[in-house]
Design a protein around this nucleic acid. Structure first.
Lengths: 245, 245
DNA sequence: GGAATAGTGTCTTTGAGACATTATGGT
DNA sequence: ACCATAATGTCTCAAAGACACTATTCC
């Protein structure tokens, strides 16, 4: 901020205590559907509801670093696509105290997603159902994975449903002008897998030839010359994401 | 955030003191070029550099409300397009203390922009030159208005050049899939004015028939039936922005 | 050879750019 | 009548959708 006066002079303490946290939306794919990793709250408030992993921002770390730390501590993951989403600052978003939270989006390739769901301290994966035909991006509905004890849609704590909805919207919006799609795939992948990722996030089927043309014309894809093994049909070529820049 | 443990329990004070502010990028048009409203710093640190108007977020107001208050107190403006941009949290962005700042973008129609430049406490308008051919959006250069004492590019304080550059980038990105362009125009305007706005922000000339087709097909424009007065040629029709939703 | 999916060729449709032409108010 | 700009018609071109067809591997 940029007061002409010294901000240490007009004392910020006069404004009262305010805490800053980060909340991280971990998104990956469960087969052909988008999924998120969540924690089930075991303490009040909002016991039993599901929430995003998060933590306080320390005085000696950047907010980006805090998000990275949460990802490491809560999910045991590192080196992933991590981007800032939006900052949520409603007065009553947490009943305990005034908390402003910077939301982040983390994208997990299938392998990391499965690892985190297995090893992460209490992280559970839930299918994300986004019944959104229009641009608005309606309320997000979470379904527990197959064979889970809880049947219905999972209720989210605090304003985390808003955060998750925004994450999906952002993801959808950036999908075809940026390289986010690759962050959900392993290092080598087929064009069909890439198209599956796009279809899962957009929630709509895509035209195959047009999709191939677009992707190949982007110049982001590098053929490896190898082909996928273990198929009972013509094995597709494996591509690699070429990081221009 | 969403600790299973109570966040009041694992004490945020253990993490040290951290201040939260908002900084507002006020953007308008100076004739046919984008311009920003800035303050000249008169106290250390960074005396003489130019900065964005900003202020602390109070314990009892949302961050959106804080941005609105800054706009009102510093520029005497209200009821404008105001949207959150990004949150900046580098450790050394302010030498006095650890400050995390939520940046906002405010769009001013020509009239409000001129009023604020005249009446706002010390606000000065500067032409924004964005030498950005590619998507990256290079460093922003600020030129003082015509006939100003200072000649060269204006230096910005703290990380405000980054914030301004991001604001321009966001504006450019949202220009043709959202209605932000109208926020820089008066209530009634001609298609030529709208095209001028787009050209100023994109920094490139546009094709007239194509632009008209696109805008009219969007369904956002409502002809008023009136025409601009005082022209020495065929007077253009005035349109109004139709707020669907 | 059959099954199944990979990968491509081509026609059509849509939307944008280019450019010229017509329209209209003031002087 | 002339000027200046508004507003539109039309041709071309680029990109996407639709759909059919060929290619390749395993069995």
């Amino acid at each position: 901020m940029s007061e002409a006066a010294n901000p240490a002079g007009d004392d910020p303490e006069a404004y009262g205590r305010l805490a800053l946290t980060v909340d991280v939306v971990l998104i990956g794919l469960r087969g052909t559907r988008p999924a998120a990793l969540l924690l089930r709250r075991s303490e009040p408030p909002q016991v039993g509801l599901w929430s995003l992993p998060g933590g306080f921002v320390r005085i000696d770390e950047t907010i980006d670093a805090a998000a990275g730390r949460v990802l490491r501590e809560k999910a045991g993951l590192t080196g992933l696509h991590l981007e800032q989403l939006y900052t949520f600052g409603a007065l009553d978003r947490d009943p305990r105290m005034r908390i402003v939270s910077v939301a982040y989006l983390a994208l997990l390739p299938e392998r990391a997603f499965a690892d985190a769901a297995r090893n992460g301290a209490g992280l559970l994966s839930a299918i994300i159902d986004v019944p959104w035909a229009g641009e608005a991006g309606g309320p997000v509905v979470l379904h527990p994975p197959e064979g889970s004890p809880e049947p219905g849609p999972l209720p989210l704590a605090f304003d985390h449903a808003d955060i998750l909805a925004l994450a999906m919207l952002r993801l959808r919006g950036k999908l075809d002008y940026s390289a986010v799609g690759f962050a959900l795939l392993p290092e080598r992948f087929t064009l069909r897998q890439l198209q599956d990722v796009h279809e899962a996030i957009l929630g709509t089927p895509l035209n195959k030839p047009a999709f191939r043309r677009r992707m190949l014309d982007r110049g982001w894809l590098e053929p490896t010359g190898e082909r996928e093994a273990g198929t009972s049909f013509r094995p597709p070529e494996l591509y690699r994401f070429r990081n221009t820049r």
